[in-house]
Protein backbone atom coordinates (compact mmCIF):
# COMPACT_ATOMS: atom_id res chain seq x y z
CA UNK A 1 0.00 0.00 0.00
CA UNK A 2 1.37 3.36 -1.03
CA UNK A 3 1.55 5.99 1.76
CA UNK A 4 0.15 9.46 1.01
CA UNK A 5 2.84 12.11 0.90
CA UNK A 6 2.31 15.76 1.79
CA UNK A 7 4.29 18.12 -0.36
CA UNK A 8 6.98 19.96 1.58
CA UNK A 9 5.95 23.20 -0.16
CA UNK A 10 2.38 22.90 1.03
CA UNK A 11 3.62 22.10 4.53
CA UNK A 12 5.85 25.17 4.51
CA UNK A 13 3.03 27.30 3.16
CA UNK A 14 0.74 26.07 5.93
CA UNK A 15 3.30 26.92 8.60
CA UNK A 16 3.86 30.32 6.98
CA UNK A 17 0.13 31.01 6.97
CA UNK A 18 -0.19 30.08 10.62
CA UNK A 19 2.72 32.35 11.47
CA UNK A 20 1.32 35.31 9.58
CA UNK A 21 -2.17 34.89 11.00
CA UNK A 22 -0.77 34.49 14.52
CA UNK A 23 1.15 37.74 14.23
CA UNK A 24 -1.87 39.57 12.80
CA UNK A 25 -4.21 38.16 15.45
CA UNK A 26 -1.85 39.18 18.23
CA UNK A 27 -1.69 42.69 16.82
CA UNK A 28 -5.45 42.92 16.47
CA UNK A 29 -6.15 41.47 19.91
CA UNK A 30 -3.64 43.80 21.52
CA UNK A 31 -5.36 46.88 20.15
CA UNK A 32 -9.03 46.89 21.15
CA UNK A 33 -11.23 48.56 18.56
CA UNK A 34 -13.24 51.20 20.40
CA UNK A 35 -16.73 52.17 19.36
CA UNK A 36 -15.99 55.84 18.86
CA UNK A 37 -19.63 56.98 18.88
CA UNK A 38 -20.40 55.04 22.03
CA UNK A 39 -17.28 56.31 23.78
CA UNK A 40 -18.19 59.86 22.84
CA UNK A 41 -21.75 59.43 24.07
CA UNK A 42 -20.44 57.91 27.32
CA UNK A 43 -18.41 61.08 27.82
CA UNK A 44 -21.39 63.32 27.10
CA UNK A 45 -23.54 61.32 29.49
CA UNK A 46 -20.95 61.64 32.26
CA UNK A 47 -20.69 65.39 31.61
CA UNK A 48 -24.49 65.64 31.61
CA UNK A 49 -24.74 63.97 35.01
CA UNK A 50 -22.07 66.29 36.39
CA UNK A 51 -24.04 69.31 35.16
CA UNK A 52 -27.34 67.98 36.48
CA UNK A 53 -25.87 67.27 39.91
CA UNK A 54 -24.11 70.60 40.15
CA UNK A 55 -26.16 72.77 42.44
CA UNK A 56 -28.58 69.91 42.91
CA UNK A 57 -26.51 67.10 44.39
CA UNK A 58 -29.47 65.09 45.69
CA UNK A 59 -30.64 64.52 42.15
CA UNK A 60 -32.57 61.47 43.16
CA UNK A 61 -35.19 63.54 44.99
CA UNK A 62 -35.74 66.12 42.25
CA UNK A 63 -39.06 66.54 40.53
CA UNK A 64 -38.97 64.27 37.43
CA UNK A 65 -40.83 66.76 35.23
CA UNK A 66 -38.42 69.58 36.06
CA UNK A 67 -35.47 67.24 35.55
CA UNK A 68 -36.89 66.17 32.19
CA UNK A 69 -37.12 69.74 30.95
CA UNK A 70 -33.62 70.51 32.12
CA UNK A 71 -32.37 67.35 30.48
CA UNK A 72 -34.01 68.26 27.15
CA UNK A 73 -32.31 71.64 27.26
CA UNK A 74 -28.93 70.15 28.11
CA UNK A 75 -28.79 67.22 25.67
CA UNK A 76 -26.46 67.95 22.73
CA UNK A 77 -28.26 68.72 19.45
CA UNK A 78 -29.38 65.58 17.67
CA UNK A 79 -29.36 63.43 20.76
CA UNK A 80 -32.06 62.08 23.01
CA UNK A 81 -31.75 61.21 26.65
CA UNK A 82 -33.32 59.11 29.34
CA UNK A 83 -32.76 59.66 33.03
CA UNK A 84 -33.63 57.17 35.72
CA UNK A 85 -33.76 58.27 39.33
CA UNK A 86 -35.32 56.79 42.42
CA UNK A 87 -38.02 59.44 42.05
CA UNK A 88 -38.98 58.37 38.54
CA UNK A 89 -37.86 58.08 34.96
CA UNK A 90 -37.92 60.74 32.27
CA UNK A 91 -37.26 60.47 28.54
CA UNK A 92 -38.07 57.90 25.89
CA UNK A 93 -37.05 54.26 26.10
CA UNK A 94 -33.51 53.44 25.14
CA UNK A 95 -33.56 52.00 21.60
CA UNK A 96 -31.72 48.83 20.70
CA UNK A 97 -29.24 48.45 17.88
CA UNK A 98 -27.78 51.96 18.13
CA UNK A 99 -24.78 53.40 19.91
CA UNK A 100 -25.85 54.41 23.41
CA UNK A 101 -23.78 56.28 25.96
CA UNK A 102 -24.39 55.63 29.63
CA UNK A 103 -23.29 57.17 32.90
CA UNK A 104 -24.28 56.40 36.45
CA UNK A 105 -23.78 58.18 39.72
CA UNK A 106 -24.83 57.65 43.29
CA UNK A 107 -26.60 60.38 45.21
CA UNK A 108 -27.84 60.55 48.77
CA UNK A 109 -31.18 59.37 47.42
CA UNK A 110 -29.97 56.47 45.35
CA UNK A 111 -28.51 55.68 41.97
CA UNK A 112 -29.11 57.92 38.97
CA UNK A 113 -28.49 56.69 35.43
CA UNK A 114 -28.37 58.74 32.25
CA UNK A 115 -28.51 57.26 28.75
CA UNK A 116 -27.78 59.29 25.64
CA UNK A 117 -28.08 58.36 21.96
CA UNK A 118 -28.34 59.94 18.55
CA UNK A 119 -31.85 60.02 17.21
Amino acid sequence: MRRGQLSVSVLEAGIGMLLLLAVASTLAAGVPVPDEREARLDGYAADGLTILRDGNPALGSAEPAALGERLDALAPPGTRARLETTGGTVGPSVPSGVAVGKARTTTANGTVTLWLWYG
Binding site: S7, S9, V10, E12, A13, G14, G16, M17, L20, L21, V23, A24, S25, L27, A28, G30, V31, V33
Partner: peptide, 20 residues
Protein backbone atom coordinates in the same frame (compact mmCIF):
# COMPACT_ATOMS: atom_id res chain seq x y z
CA UNK B 1 -1.01 26.38 -4.40
CA UNK B 2 1.45 27.14 -1.62
CA UNK B 3 2.24 30.57 -3.03
CA UNK B 4 -1.44 31.26 -3.39
CA UNK B 5 -2.11 30.28 0.24
CA UNK B 6 0.76 32.37 1.58
CA UNK B 7 -0.31 35.38 -0.50
CA UNK B 8 -3.87 35.06 0.76
CA UNK B 9 -2.66 34.79 4.35
CA UNK B 10 -0.39 37.78 3.88
CA UNK B 11 -3.27 39.81 2.48
CA UNK B 12 -5.51 38.86 5.40
CA UNK B 13 -2.76 39.66 7.89
CA UNK B 14 -2.14 43.07 6.32
CA UNK B 15 -5.87 43.76 6.42
CA UNK B 16 -6.13 42.91 10.11
CA UNK B 17 -2.99 44.86 10.95
CA UNK B 18 -4.20 47.84 8.94
CA UNK B 19 -7.51 47.83 10.81
CA UNK B 20 -5.73 47.65 14.14
Amino acid sequence: VSLLLVSAALGAALGVAGGA
